[in-house]
Structures are given as C-alpha cells and as structure tokens.
Write a protein that binds this DNA or RNA. Sequence first.
DNA 1: GCTATGACCTAAT
DNA 2: AATTAGGCCATAG
Length: 107
Amino acid sequence: MVNKVMTNSEKVYEIVESIPRGKVLTYGILAELVGITNPRVVGNILHSNPYEDSVHCHRVVNAQGGLAPAFAFGGAEKQKEKLLKEGATFRGEFVLLEKCLWDVDAV
DNA sequence: GCTATGACCTAAT
DNA sequence: AATTAGGCCATAG
C-alpha cells in the first residue's frame, strides 16, 4: 500500500495547532504522540516553526512545565503572561501540568 | 548525501 | 543543588 506518509513534524504542527486555549503540552508527550522516541526532534521542529502563523509554540513546554531557558517569543515571562491570559495556571515560573496539561487522549 | 547542531529528557556525579 | 554525559532523531547548511 502506498499510504501517504505524514512526517512526524506535520503531526507535531497539527497537534500544536490543536492545543486549546489555556492548555499546554510537554515535548516528551508531544514526541510520543507523534511517534518520535526522541523529544529533541520536537524542539527542533518547533524551532523551525514553518507554521508560526498558526502553530502556537508557546503552548509547548518542557517536562518541568516550564518554558525553554531561552524561548524566542520575547521572554519566558512574557510567555507566562500570555498563557495566564489564556487561562493557564502557573506556579511560579512553572505551569501546573496537572491542571493545564492538554489531555490528547481525551480528544 | 553527509555533517553539525539542537526550543529535550533522564540519570549520574 | 548544579553540572556533565549519554541517547536519540529531524532540520538546516
């Protein structure tokens, strides 16, 4: 069968674009969702961000629930403010994954 | 087509 | 507690 193969990156974009407001996802989970065994790829894919017009990379966080050490959105603090306005819950500089972790399996 | 790098994660030191 | 090392895969030059 010659099923059209969708690259994992495409899936990443799809998922990230599908992240609802006030929810966040971790690189590790996102990686597993797309079938990648390595979270680094997710970060790299998002770094390329060819869909920055639609993909909200700021809704993707690390396993700690915090943003990257040098997020290129204008500052992690700015990022926090944005997520806060979206309805996400933060604990200090880390988002409460227990509350804001997007349940992909539920969707 | 190959090499180098990377927005991560985990464990160990 | 912080830093180093290893692992692994995709994107870019």
